[in-house]
Computed example of a mutant assay.
Amino acid sequence: MFPKNTWYVACTAEDLDTKPLGRTICNERIAFFRSDANKVAAVEDFCPHRGAPLSLGKVCDGKLVCGYHGLEMGCDGKVVSMPGQRVQGFTPVKSFPVEERYGFIWVWPGDAAKADAALIPHMEWHDNPEWAYGGGLYHVKADYRLMVDNLMDLTHETYVHATSIGQKEIDEVPCKTTEEGDTVITSRHMENISAPPFWQAALRAKQLADDVPVDRWQICRFTPPSHVMIEVGVAHAGHGGYDAPDEHKVYSVVVDFITPETETSMWYFWGMARRYNPQDQALTAQIREGQGKIFSEDLEMLERQQANLLTWPDRKLLKLNIDAGGVQSRRVIDRVLAAEQAQQVQPEGASA
């Protein structure tokens, strides 16, 4: 159901301090911790002594110490020592490739031999003085693909987010869907409309008039396994819309990292990178609070949608033109899964 030979966001760098963190990703129970020189490590969240979760322990001298009987685990999953016991012959637990980049901890839950840090997507806004970023995390009890559907079809904003970013023009203006390799792009450009409340506040924050017609854009980009980046913004009408000079527009990128936990649950890392007033920390906090409320509305909808789908698993769902982004994104996921499964099939005659 989900690719495993790929990078997922496990947590933020701030989430991982002096204590280990336990998190299930793609049905793998993983303990994350900082070893020597503050380097991040990830091992199976299972103590080989009595099966206790290693994430309930502590980190001491760069080693993960089980909180049950004090067994010490290295970052490679090998047992190092245990008070009063000989444990060097213990079978190692699984370790996972892990990288710290762009303020996130990334993990590769599949075949470690295939892990390549160069495949982690580049984030131009990280540590860039022209940008500011704020975000958060939701645990959502729903299939991660439902969130992909949600983000690749923004017509729901008119109804789910009517008091913040929704407006009737989203329904009225057609959305264009294209593919570039494994990237699926949906785009909508609305001209000469009124800015909704969220964007009125953004215009005021940049000391731009909020009561004049604007051009608004939404450009959603899905890349496997489950990342969605959405370019959003408004510009005073008549200045070029998306291509308007900075002094006439407010521009942001909605950052969505969707990490499967199980077949029916996910970790949803959301945020917004904005390219205006980057030094205004109060504005960053204000936007994060507002965005958190918006995404909480999605959370309730998706969890109830998942409950319905589990109750009526045989019901076929309608596919409309507005669903094209989600449908094509799922096709990409299916292609990635098929290729991954094909690589796992051993040639005829190979030994098991």
Rank of each mutant, 00 (worst) to 15 (best):
V250S: 08
V345D: 15
F2Q: 09
D149W: 05
I287Y: 05
S351Q: 15
I333E: 00
S95K: 02
E179L: 10
H236Y: 07
A112T: 05
I105W: 01
D280Q: 09
E303D: 12
M229R: 11
V98E: 00
P313D: 11
N27T: 10
S81A: 14
K168D: 15
G57N: 08
N27A: 12
H156Y: 08
R330H: 11
G181H: 08
S329W: 06
S296P: 03
P3H: 06
K141M: 13
W131H: 13
M82N: 04
P92F: 02
D314Q: 14
F46N: 10
T158C: 14
P213I: 09
A282S: 11
F222E: 04
R315Y: 08
F104M: 10
G57I: 01
V327D: 14
W267M: 04
N192S: 11
D45G: 05
M190G: 10
Y133R: 08
P174G: 11
H236W: 09
I258Y: 01
E297S: 11
D153M: 03
G233W: 07
M1Q: 14
L64T: 02
C47W: 04
A13N: 11
S296G: 12
H236G: 10
M272E: 10
D149R: 06
L283Q: 10
S226D: 00
D246C: 08
Q85S: 11
D182N: 15
C26W: 00
P83L: 09
I170K: 00
H248I: 02
F257I: 06
A202S: 15
A209R: 15
H122T: 13
L203W: 06
D323H: 10
Y138W: 11
G89Q: 10
H239M: 10
S164P: 03
A117T: 14
Y144W: 08
S55W: 09
R274T: 03
H248Q: 12
L119K: 15
T12G: 11
S252L: 11
E99W: 06
F96K: 03
G325V: 04
L320S: 13
E124L: 08
D76K: 06
V173Q: 14
Q207G: 06
F32N: 01
V148K: 01
E99G: 06
R275W: 07
L54P: 02
P83G: 10
V214T: 05
M73W: 01
V148W: 00
I294D: 10
Q305H: 13
D314T: 15
R50T: 09
S35V: 07
K39R: 12
Q281P: 05
S296C: 09
D256V: 02
A350R: 13
W217H: 05
D153R: 01
E303T: 02
C66R: 05
K39I: 03
D45E: 04
I322M: 14
A273S: 11
G166Q: 08
L309G: 11
D111W: 02
A13W: 01
S81L: 01
V327L: 15
A237S: 15
F96S: 02
W270L: 03
G62I: 04
T183F: 06
C60I: 12
R204M: 05
I219G: 01
I105T: 04
K293D: 12
D211T: 06
A273H: 00
D127Y: 03
Q291E: 09
F90Y: 13
G84F: 12
D15Y: 01
R216S: 12
P48T: 01
Q343G: 15
V332R: 07
D36I: 06
S226M: 06
D17C: 01
C220F: 02
